[in-house]
């Protein structure tokens, strides 16, 4: 190959990645073995995942771990309370109050917008009435015999 041709050789990393993909692809003997292994493992996991016994076992273990953590959090809160330090529940209460306050401000601003809109509407209506009255007066004065 002459130097400077446009046929650029792919990077080493590209070749390695592609080679690995093909080596484990369904068209090669190694890949066929891999695909068969993958299928049987998937089948095994599917069977396991739908087994009531397995799910009860995993669920039970998870629930026990969660209850232990919950008890730990409660104990931690009690200690913080004894030390007169803010607990996470109290912080959550505070955050909830802030959120409620924000929502109330937003609701108030919406109501204020409605009031402003209504005022604007009545102002425009009043202006319209005034304009009609002025026009009527103007035309009445022009119609008045001199």
């Amino acid at each position: 190959m002459a130097k400077g041709t446009s046929n650029k050789q792919p990077k080493l990393l590209t070749r390695v990645v592609k080679g690995l993909g093909h080596w484990l692809g369904p068209e090669t003997p190694t890949g066929k073995v891999f695909v068969a292994a993958e299928k049987s493992m998937t089948k095994a996991f599917d069977k396991l995942g739908s087994s009531d016994r397995y799910l009860d076992l995993v669920g039970g273990a998870l629930n026990r771990a969660l209850r232990v953590r919950k008890a730990y959090v409660e104990a931690q809160e009690n200690w913080l309370h004894l030390l007169r330090l803010p607990t996470s529940t109290e912080m959550d209460d505070l955050r909830e109050e802030v959120r409620d306050a924000k929502n109330q401000i937003e609701a108030l601003s919406s109501q204020l917008e409605l009031v402003v809109d209504a005022l604007e509407k009545s102002r425009r209506e009043a202006q319209g009435v005034e304009a009609v009255r002025t026009n009527a007066n103007g035309s009445a004065s022009t119609e008045r015999p001199s």
């Binding site: 669920g59 039970g60 969660l66 209850r67 953590r69 919950k70 996470s88």
Partner: peptide, 13 residues
């Protein structure tokens, strides 16, 4: 019977 959602939320927030 498999998932105690109360314990999860109380434990982690």
């Amino acid at each position: 019977n498999r998932f105690d959602v109360d314990a999860l939320v109380d434990a982690y927030g």
